[in-house]
Design a protein around this nucleic acid. Structure first.
Lengths: 135, 135
DNA sequence: CTACATACGTAATAACGTAACGCCGGGACG
DNA sequence: CGTCCCGGCGTTACGTTATTACGTATGTAG
């Protein structure tokens, strides 16, 4: 969890990050590719390479259960803890939060097992408040 | 979290579950397909259909970050809480555990958000104790 | 200049997953 | 008994997601 600022983004990285930010929600790599064809993108690898870096920088998260990617919701993407996601299966909205207490318990477990943790995926599927209304 | 016993498995379901149990670790759907060619399997759908049911019965878990499946480690697969997985990136070993306290905190969050939880994915990536030894 | 590292472009292919169709066997029920 | 429905099955074809392999360009350290 570094506090440093990230390297300047390359053109491709900036384009991919822009797509995700504008979308305001998750996009698949191929959806990004389609959005960026007009900007000269031709092949999946251009997207995947940029995504790899953006994920490495912590600016983008991968949603494993969706095979999709989302811009980190923290303005400026400053340092923060492990992110968790609540994914509404009705409307597709994704809420990001940082379950610090739960993570601390999970880390207790890894410590007791001698497991050296490098990355955590927490994804909750269900129905958001909006989609829950009885009407 | 039902306490009932599961329906009798069909032939295909039993074959797929057997593969996963024998493997003692995660397998991809296509790896299972290859293992079962001698038993008459020909197409991915045969595997996926069986896996869908086995996951529904709680006998098999899907590892989202691996696109793979693993037999539930609870003998007899009796009723149990949400499972979490620690995946060693060196040796591939997967440890299943039930992080009840962490889940309870995550449920606190969903409750406060009005989010109706249906399914939870928790996957920890890192290095297991065995692979951590200094030598 | 050379060596090395990083980003990039492109083509091809691998890996993962699903739609659509039809068949079959068994239970419900008139 | 007939027939209706349903779950499981087999097969073909296809769609989606991700990577391998190869070559080019550019920057920087030695």
């Amino acid at each position: 969890m570094s506090v440093e600022t990230h390297p300047e983004l390359t053109k491709n990285q900036a384009l991919v990050f822009g797509s995700l930010s504008d979308a305001g929600g998750p996009l698949t790599a191929y959806a990004i590719l389609d959005l960026l064809r007009d900007s000269g993108f031709r092949a999946p690898l251009q997207v995947y390479r940029a995504l790899d870096k953006l994920v490495e920088y912590g600016m983008v998260h991968r949603l494993e259960s969706l095979n999709a990617f989302v811009a980190c919701s923290h303005k400026g993407c400053s340092s923060h803890g492990t992110a968790a996601f609540a994914i509404c299966e009705q409307c597709g909205v994704v809420s990001e939060f940082t379950p610090d207490k739960a993570m601390s318990l999970l880390r207790d477990w890894t410590r007791s097992e001698g497991f050296q943790l490098s990355r955590t995926t927490i994804e909750l599927r269900g129905t958001c408040r909006q989609c829950n209304v009885p009407n």
